[in-house]
Computed example of a mutant assay.
Amino acid sequence: MNWLDRIAALRQWARNGTRAPHKPLLLLYALARFQEDADGGLRYTAVEQDLQSLLAEYGPPHKTTPAYPFHHLVSDGVWEVRTDRGDGSPGSGVRELRQTGATGRLAPELRAALRREPDLLGRIARLLLDLHFPPSLHGELCEAVGLELEPAESGRLVPARRQRDPRMRELVLTAYEYRCAFCGYDGRIGTVPVGLEAAHVRWWAFGGPDDIDNGLCLCSLHHKLFDKGVLGVGDDHRVLVSRRFVGHSAAARQHVTALAGRPLTGPQPGTRRIAAAHRDWHTRQVFRGEPRPAAAPAGG
């Protein structure tokens, strides 16, 4: 049985590029717990808060529940649920999972494969990360679930039917003249840019192309905040800042809240700006809450 193919084929609710990372998040969490205790189970009432926190941090902007993947992942053949009544999930309702003592864990065949092949756990984890989350979030997501991974093997784990374009970074940074589109940062060491990255507006994992009109040159800080839904891009190509973001320090105001309403820096004339379809996807699927009003001019 090819477990990577099975993981890549997880059935998820999807419509118009809607993000539904519920099952991948539960699997990453379960893999981390497997590292700690290969025979242990995850009682729903004991892990519900952890899973809810993961969904709030890395899931879609709208409210959701960990009961959904806890029940529905069984149908993918990688997960099992038992209750005080015996084998089988009682359903996807929170009350049913709580009242029946529902306990989930990786399917027996998958647990056996993980024991036989020591590197399989890392390969599955990296596949889940590559297919469902942008690279800027991989490290902190592993830390959030408690997953310990060895250095990655050579080669990508994304299905070969779609490969990333290695030229995108240079094309996007050139289009924005090596300046962060949000704050204008343009640091270098000698002639080498430092802390500048090519961000996908519509995530590559969700069909976002490696095209200039789906890219932004961003500094490392603003790339992370963009992928976390703190920052966005409005229809008028001005910076959106989420009302949900809270920062009282002068640094938070200067580097985040003061960006509200600021026009993007770049791209240079003759270069395609961000396509409306990609901006719309990011606003619906990543940006959190409502945008703040434009920041008042300094001294105004």
Rank of each mutant, 00 (worst) to 15 (best):
L51T: 04
R85T: 05
H278E: 04
A295Q: 12
C142P: 12
E57D: 13
V246D: 14
R126D: 10
N214S: 10
A175M: 02
W281I: 06
F287S: 11
A113L: 09
G40Y: 10
P118N: 14
A144W: 08
V239E: 03
V74D: 07
F287N: 04
P61S: 01
R116Q: 13
C180F: 03
R272V: 07
Y185Q: 07
L131Q: 08
R167S: 13
V201K: 01
L216H: 08
G146R: 06
A258T: 00
G207C: 05
P90I: 02
A205N: 04
Q12C: 08
P263W: 06
I189A: 13
D37W: 10
G155M: 08
L171E: 08
R167Q: 01
D5S: 11
W281C: 01
K23F: 09
M1S: 00
H200G: 00
R262N: 03
R244I: 12
G146N: 11
V78Q: 09
Q285L: 04
P209Q: 07
D235Y: 05
A32V: 03
L137Y: 13
G104Y: 05
R82A: 15
L221M: 14
D87E: 14
T191F: 11
V145Q: 05
D227S: 09
D211K: 06
M168K: 15
L221T: 13
A205C: 01
L73N: 06
A175F: 08
D227F: 02
L120V: 02
A20D: 15
P267E: 05
R279C: 15
L73Q: 01
L42C: 04
H237I: 08
L97G: 11
H71Y: 12
R156A: 10
V94C: 09
A107V: 03
V241W: 10
T45G: 01
A56C: 12
L221Q: 14
H222F: 02
G139E: 14
Q285H: 11
G247P: 06
G184H: 08
R156W: 09
G289C: 09
F287I: 03
G184T: 05
R6F: 04
G184N: 01
R273L: 11
T265P: 05
P269M: 12
H138Y: 03
A14Y: 07
A298D: 11
P21A: 01
D227R: 09
P135C: 00
H248M: 09
L31K: 09
S136P: 03
R85Q: 15
A175I: 08
P90C: 05
F182M: 01
S136G: 02
H200E: 00
R33S: 13
R161E: 08
P69F: 07
P293H: 13
R85D: 15
S220I: 13
W3T: 01
T271G: 03
G299C: 14
Y185S: 00
L27S: 04
V230G: 08
A112S: 07
Y185T: 05
S249G: 05
A251I: 03
T257G: 10
T191P: 12
A32M: 10
G270H: 12
D50F: 07
E290S: 10
L216F: 02
R111V: 03
G289E: 06
A112N: 08
P134Q: 02
P293L: 14
G91M: 11
G41R: 05
P134M: 06
H132T: 00
R244D: 15
D37M: 13
S89I: 05
E36K: 01
Y176D: 01
S53F: 03
G122W: 06
G86M: 09
F206W: 00
G195M: 00
G146C: 12
